[in-house]
Amino acid sequence: MTGLPEAGFVGLSAALVAVGLFGILTRRNFVLLLIAIEIAMNAAILNFVYFAAFAPTPGEGLAGQAAAVVLVGFAATEVAVGLAIVLALNRAKGTINVAEATELRL
């Protein structure tokens, strides 16, 4: 069962990263920001799974899948922390618009 195009997978993950970046750069809502980050993250996981499936040796393939599993865990953690930030931001400023959290400015 072959015929899955390499260029297609790479293109897909590149496209998803680009979409995620686009979201990160343009959205001002913190929840949307998180979603955009998740999209970009999924692109990375997809890459791991894809290259694991076509790895030269079983060991390397398993390494790729294991990395994918760990990454899923990281992504879930990151969402949890991100949402905690959303709640804290909402409580502190009454908004979840990141453009209004400008304390970093000099």
């Binding site: 069962m1 929840v31 799974v49 899948q65 865990g73 949402l83 709640l87």
Partner: peptide, 30 residues
């Protein structure tokens, strides 16, 4: 499709399940 069933299930459970609910929860709390 890539013959990685465990990851597929994981994706369903963690992302489509948990993360989505978390995000929804975040929106509802705010």
């Amino acid at each position: 499709l890539l013959e990685a069933p465990f990851l597929g299930v994981l994706q369903l459970g963690v992302y489509a399940g948990a993360v989505t609910v978390l995000l929804l929860f975040g929106i509802m709390v705010t």
